[in-house]
């Protein structure tokens, strides 16, 4: 176990390094720079001045080494978009906002999706099943920003029950959480249904049934647990997505989270921010996968971590 964990953690370091190189090269390959050009092109001198100010005139290798050196010392630089704070400070300020929203959405989506999926599987091909399928399809095909726009028009503009957006009060959660939860809810429902049906037909459930266990016992003790595996695999990647924020949802509801920076840092060629966000997500994601793999062994003891050849 310790060896396994060590191997995985070493893997995270490798991932961190590869991602940093690839992203560094990619982002510097995008046309344009952090300087602003609008009405009239900047003169060559003015542009050169700008690049020099941020050290962007140096060779890429030098810039990379300098940056990584700083990162290893814990200094992620200053975001071009918000030069009065540090990148780390900005992330520390905005990430908890996104994370709380994402967690709230998960807390809504998971139980509701499970319930819907179980209902659909239990009453396969009944109207419950069809309704659940329709809901799931809707959740996956209607983009969440469209849902968000309509929520605002209905609840804020027409009914005036809620403000159109903002942050700081409990009621500011209602609309963004609803819009955010829809897709993972649909995903959960869909995979739960499929997995349960799958497991129900498998040998060991048949064995269990032949041993005289009741349907409920089978559902709880065998089916659900086994159905968790593909669900975990599919839902796990949703988690970093959700807790790092969603651009459209946050910008529609004026949530001061991390989400918009994933796009605005690319649009603004905010190199320190692009790097920090990607490295942050890289580490976060690697950890989520590590935990997912550990969870596999809990829900399905047949999975062995070491993956030894037999």
């Amino acid at each position: 176990m310790a060896r396994y964990l060590f191997g995985r953690l070493a893997g995270i370091v490798i991932v961190f390094w590869i991602v940093s190189v690839v992203i560094f090269l990619l982002m510097h390959a995008i046309p344009g720079g952090p300087y602003n050009e609008d009405k009239v092109p900047l003169t060559a001198e003015a542009k050169a001045n700008y690049l020099r100010k941020y050290g962007l005139d140096r060779p890429l290798v030098e810039q990379y080494l300098l940056y990584m050196g700083n990162v290893l010392r814990g200094d992620f630089g200053v975001p071009f978009q918000s030069p009065t704070e540090s990148v780390a400070g900005l992330i520390a300020r905005t990430w908890p906002v996104s994370a709380s929203l994402g967690l709230a959405a998960l807390l809504v989506a998971l139980p509701a999706g499970l319930l819907l999926g179980i209902l659909a599987a239990a009453r396969q091909n009944s109207w419950v099943d069809y309704l659940a399928s329709a809901t799931a399809t809707l959740g996956l095909t209607v983009p969440n920003f469209v849902v968000a726009v309509w929520l605002v028009l209905l609840l804020a503009v027409q009914l005036k029950w809620l403000p159109t957006g903002g942050w700081g009060e409990w009621y500011h959660y209602i609309m963004p959480v609803t819009a955010l939860a829809l897709a993972p809810l649909a995903l959960t429902a869909r995979y739960t249904r499929t997995s349960i049906l799958e497991v129900v037909r498998s040998d060991y459930v048949r064995t269990a049934r032949s041993k005289g266990l009741s349907d409920r016992q089978i559902l709880l003790r065998h089916t659900l647990r086994n159905a968790m595996i593909p669900l975990l695999t599919i839902l796990a990647p949703q988690i970093p997505n959700l807790i790092t924020g969603t651009i459209f949802i946050e910008s529609i509801f004026r949530v001061p989270g991390l989400g918009k920076f994933f796009v605005s840092s690319i649009l603004g060629r905010d190199y320190p921010m692009i790097m920090a966000l990607l490295l942050l997500v890289a580490v976060l994601w690697s950890l989520v996968y590590l935990i997912t793999d550990l969870l596999y062994t809990l829900v399905d003891p047949r999975v062995r971590l070491e993956g030894k050849k037999s």
Partner: peptide
Amino acid sequence: MRLVEVFTAVP
């Protein structure tokens, strides 16, 4: 799996 992580690590 590390390759997968590299790719997943980037949104």
